[in-house]
C-alpha cells in the first residue's frame, strides 16, 4: 500500500506535532509556544542545526565554554514574525503543508510565509508558499490587500530573490489598466520605487523573453536568452564564445 518508502514515517511524524513526547525544544513567538523536536527542526533547515548544535561540539563540552543560549535552554524565541504565520510554519514542519486558518488575507499570509521560510532557510516551505501565493494573487489581485502583499514582497525578500517579485509583476502587468484606476496603487508605485522601476521595464522584458528562447552556454554554463535561428551563430553574452549549435543547448 505504501506509495513511497517514506509514507509511514511521514504519517507518524504528524503525530508529534506540538507533542510533548520526546520534545526537546520549544519555539516561542509572541504569546504562543510550540513543543518541537530538535531533530525535526534540524532536518528542515541549517538554521536550526546551528541553533541547536552547540552542546554537541566536543570542544565546548570539554572546556565548558557555552555556545549560544538556545542550545543550552532549548527555548527558541522567534521575534519580528507574526505568531500566526509562525504557527502555520511549525505546522508545516510536521505536515509538509499548511493552511491559512486565521482569516488573514491569504495573499499577505503567503507572502509573509515565503519571507519567513527564506529567513529560516526552509526550502520546501518556501516552495509551497510561492505556489499558494501565486494562486492567491491570480484570483485576488483586484482586492486592496494585493497592494499590501506587494509591499510585503518588496520589503521582506532579498532583491535577488525573484520568486514572488516576478509573480507580482506579471499579475500587475496583466491587469495594469484596472490597477491604475486605483489611487492606492498609484500611491504604492510612488512609495515603492523599486516596484515602480521593475514595472516599467517588465513589459518589454517580458515580450522579449516570450519571443526568445533560453540556451545554456556549454563553455561557461550560463544561460543566454537569444533569438537564435538554425544556421546563424551567436556569441555567448557571458564568455564570448561563438557557436552556431545553440539548438543543442536549449533549456
Amino acid at each position: 500500500m505504501a506509495e513511497t518508502a517514506t509514507e509511514g514515517f511521514v504519517t507518524a511524524l504528524k503525530g508529534y506535532h506540538n507533542s510533548a513526547t520526546f520534545s526537546d525544544a520549544v519555539i516561542r513567538c509572541g504569546n504562543k509556544e510550540f513543543k518541537t523536536h530538535r531533530l525535526v527542526l534540524s532536518s528542515h533547515s541549517g538554521f536550526f542545526v546551528k541553533m541547536c548544535t552547540g552542546k554537541h561540539i566536543l570542544w565546548v563540552r570539554l572546556t565548558g565554554v557555552p555556545y549560544f543560549q538556545e542550545s543550552e535552554t532549548g527555548i527558541i524565541t522567534l521575534e519580528e514574525a507574526d505568531e500566526r504565520v509562525v504557527e502555520a510554519m511549525v505546522y508545516f514542519l510536521y505536515h509538509f503543508d499548511y493552511s491559512n486558518t486565521q482569516g488573514i488575507s491569504s495573499m499577505v499570509f503567503n507572502a509573509q510565509m515565503y519571507s519567513l521560510a527564506d529567513r529560516y532557510m526552509i526550502a520546501a516551505l518556501k516552495h509551497i508558499a510561492k505556489e499558494k501565493f501565486e494562486t492567491a494573487i491570480k484570483t485576488g489581485w483586484a482586492m486592496d490587500d494585493f497592494l499590501l502583499a506587494i509591499t510585503d514582497v518588496y520589503e521582506s525578500t532579498p532583491e535577488d530573490d525573484r520568486g514572488l517579485r516576478d509573480l507580482v509583476l506579471d499579475v500587475s502587468h496583466t491587469n495594469l489598466g484596472k490597477l491604475l484606476e486605483n489611487a492606492r496603487f498609484q500611491e504604492l508605485l510612488r512609495d515603492t520605487p523599486r516596484f515602480a522601476a521593475e514595472m516599467v521595464s517588465y513589459g518589454p522584458e517580458k515580450s522579449r523573453r516570450d519571443a526568445a528562447e533560453r540556451y545554456r552556454c556549454p563553455s561557461c554554463t550560463k544561460v543566454n536568452i537569444l533569438e537564435w535561428q538554425r544556421g546563424s551563430y551567436f556569441y555567448c553574452a557571458h564568455c564570448n564564445s561563438r557557436r552556431s549549435d545553440w539548438g543543442s543547448y536549449q533549456v
Partner: peptide, 13 residues
C-alpha cells in the same frame, strides 16, 4: 568566552 547568554536567533536576525 561570554557567549553563553547570547541568543542565536537575535544575532542571526
Amino acid at each position: 568566552k561570554n557567549a553563553g547568554g547570547l541568543s542565536f536567533e537575535a544575532l542571526y536576525r
